[in-house]
Design a protein around this nucleic acid. Structure first.
Lengths: 221, 221
DNA sequence: GTTTTTACTTTGACTACTCAAAGTATCTAA
DNA sequence: TTAGATACTTTGAGTAGTCAAAGTAAAAAC
């Protein structure tokens, strides 16, 4: 069975949205928002996916990937992340711009090309944002990192992963040297001003808002 | 203006079909056959392309690319051929199988990625089949090679280009060492049996039918 | 416990592409 | 110069995906 790019996108977003809200069923509104389509469009498509056995759908309840749907979703995510890493490591594209490119390429990569890319890159575990790359078998490593909002103060931390794909956000992080692999220390966390003070390897100190700090995941260095 | 993959395919085939039959107008039937669609479908689409200023269309006469249509066509062909070379040289895919892969990828490659690929490959002139790669400016080198049907007998020749993309045909040529770059000598050309005897660098002699021999283009070594 | 709001579903319509089959122009051949 | 074949166009219909807007169920507020 070959899935259309559109269907692949529904499955991919279904998986990622499902992951970061641990409810039983994903509300249709969340899915529609993630895909930037109207709720009516999402409903129509989800019914089609349910008929194809890729999701279970409860009217006015929500939607959830079946095991089969999840395998397809993981395969799309694998293609996406391998391509992202290829664009950065082999072609030298900017960390902040590869997401949009990969969105198009992920639907045009055959299993054979994917395998060759994976080999060329040395069977990588993570993409340039630190997002784990599902194995060809469908296995996805689940890493539990703390964010800059939760980690210990004063202790050196290594950035492991950055959530979010907005180009501007990523460009800023790059400028601030807040990229996966970099070492940082959270100096203070101001309670009511919604702000975190972070010292980078370069010695500079930067103030981050809570929503930004929550997207930067670290582990003690 | 962004063109759909479908439109890109129409323009691409329009260009290549136009090239190897030097008539003023390309008959609709030829185009439909090249695209594997029904004549009615081709007519409908060509009218749309004409409205967009990409072709000129004479009902019951035929179709021809405008200058603008041709630039788009060359850009698609450039993406196709750069990708083919990348698949062979960097990923190590087989010469005979890259065409189908490139058919999908050519519509998903941005200008930026194309430029990086071109750079990585050292600004190549030709793809793995010897087909010339249009420059980013839209310039396409026109090479005039003789085929194994026309070249001088007994004189060593170098294979410069192989026409046709059929996987089986290309696999066979690979097995016979009849690939671009290889040295061959046409020993005899039998008049009525429609056959050509070719000696390869390895010393083996092979008989080729006229239709196959006409697809192998050479130049004195 | 009724009303209002919110979230969702349904409906009707549109774009892009496709085919099958009916219709028409043109060319060939008698 | 008419008859038939060929090549093309038109028409009607179907699939995949989309939106706007009307309709409905459930939750929240009163």
């Amino acid at each position: 069975m070959t899935l259309s790019p559109t269907v692949e996108n529904y499955l991919k977003h279904l998986f990622t949205e499902q992951q970061d809200s641990d409810a039983e069923l994903l509300p249709m509104g969340k899915l529609a928002a993630a895909l930037a389509v109207t709720p009516g469009t999402a409903t129509t498509m989800v019914k089609t996916l349910a008929d194809a056995g890729l999701v279970t759908y409860e009217p006015r309840g929500g939607v959830r990937l079946t095991a089969r749907g999840e395998q397809h979703a993981l395969n799309v995510i694998r293609r996406h992340r391998v391509v992202e890493l290829f664009l950065v490591k082999v072609l030298g594209l900017d960390w902040s711009e590869v997401h949009a490119e990969a969105e198009k390429l992920e639907h045009a990569i055959s299993e054979k090309v994917l395998e060759k890319l994976d080999e060329l890159l040395g069977r990588p575990d993570c993409d340039p944002h630190g997002d784990p790359i599902p194995r060809a078998t469908g296995k996805l490593a689940v890493m539990q990192f703390k964010s800059l909002m939760e980690c210990e103060l004063g202790l050196p931390q290594r950035i492991m992963r950055v959530l979010g794909q907005d180009t501007g956000f990523l460009q800023t992080l790059h400028r601030l040297e807040l990229v996966p692999g970099a070492k940082v220390t959270v100096q203070t966390r101001a309670e009511f001003t919604d702000s975190v003070n972070v010292k980078t390897a370069g010695g500079k100190t930067t103030a981050l808002g809570a929503s930004a700090a929550a997207k930067i995941l670290v582990q003690p260095a």
